[in-house]
Design a protein around this nucleic acid. Structure first.
Lengths: 196, 196
DNA sequence: CACTAAACCGAATACACATTCTAATTGATC
DNA sequence: GATCAATTAGAATGTGTATTCGGTTTAGTG
């Protein structure tokens, strides 16, 4: 069967990637257990058997999605982070994460609703912390240099990223438009939360 | 069959309550779809048919659990809240919620992992906001009286409660012991987040 | 043009589980 | 102690779906 019409982006991708992205799309909409493999196969334009050629089982697909998004985080978060002045660094990281969530709503929803126990177990999560060591080090240095509050590193990290998630949640639940002013408010509040 | 031995707490409870609590316990451990009705029946000490005498279906049980916990929130959060000085009010509410989570880990996990879309839909969630109007009003008054930052009410609420959840998460993930000092750190950070 | 291995297919399988159904039991009321 | 409604029981039903498997196509190689 020939395709004379221009080939769409999806068709060009290799099947494994198509399966992953289709699963991601369906899973954030319907939930893991409400998305049958048959539907994934159909929407990805492959046969059910093909899925099992690339993946051991359904769980493995979900795990690969989780790992993929964690990798993204590691790369995106530290983009354009300046060298000095932690307040500046913090602002850039904060915006990086917020913008990533807004630009990738499926990634956000996946992490919120799918990337949690018992779907994603502790082992997989542990394997992904390596992507965040850079960020960790930045925060740790800031604590040592007294640029931010002298509290436990884990606490500071959890509160900071929790705040970005809170901001993104408001945007997605459409409870707030999150215009420039509100984004700046949220960032400022996050900073006040951790500053020395 | 007679029971001569003392009857346990669970046995005394009416069956509906037993079913609900058993479902809650199993669901936070295994996830909704990994918890078959047959197991709930077994562990609750009732027959499967009995469950369907009290509930329309599985979904309805989950929804009742959600509503039950939201009611709890409404009551627990405003306990012992003083009349003046929002900073004091905030501290009490913060501790109320934190202690509730720590004292009711199943409620916390349920809200984190089960009480989310697509399991709990927007309609049910909307019906439960009424339990939070008191809290809302307190925060709104504080904004008007310039006791806290002049930002959007929803933003302030989301950030504040997000911070409590962050603190509880650390405790449950056992990443921090959350001793008195760390709890006070977290509270102080939350307050700095919203203060004027 | 064989030959091979990987990629691909989708009907068939096997099983798990939500829900239903009929019948038994209980307990209250007269 | 007869009658009726509420409650309880658990086997049976039916559906949905994850996974398997034997066969087919494709693409690369000598």
């Amino acid at each position: 069967m020939l395709k004379t019409a221009p080939i769409g982006v999806v068709d060009k991708m290799d099947k494994k990637k198509r399966i992953i992205l289709t699963m991601l799309e369906l899973v954030v909409e319907q939930g893991v257990h409400a998305t049958p493999m048959s539907q994934v196969a159909k929407e990805a334009g492959v046969a059910v058997g093909t899925i099992y050629h690339y993946f051991k089982n359904k769980e493995e697909i979900i795990e690969e999605i989780y790992i993929m998004i964690c990798q993204d985080f590691g790369i995106v978060l530290i983009a354009n982070v300046p060298n000095d002045d932690f307040k500046e660094q913090f602002a850039v990281i904060w915006h990086n994460l917020y913008n990533y969530f807004i630009g990738n709503p499926m990634a956000f929803k996946f992490m919120e609703f799918v990337g949690v126990p018992p779907i994603i177990n502790a082992e997989i999560r542990l394997k992904s912390v390596k992507h965040f060591t850079n960020i960790r080090d930045l925060f740790l240095a800031a604590i040592i240099k007294k640029e931010i509050k002298d509290a436990n590193l884990r606490l500071v990290l959890q509160m900071s990223f929790g705040n970005v998630i809170s901001a993104a949640r408001l945007k997605f639940k459409a409870e707030l438009p999150m215009n420039e002013e509100q984004i700046e408010d949220a960032l400022q509040m996050s900073w006040n939360c951790i500053k020395a």
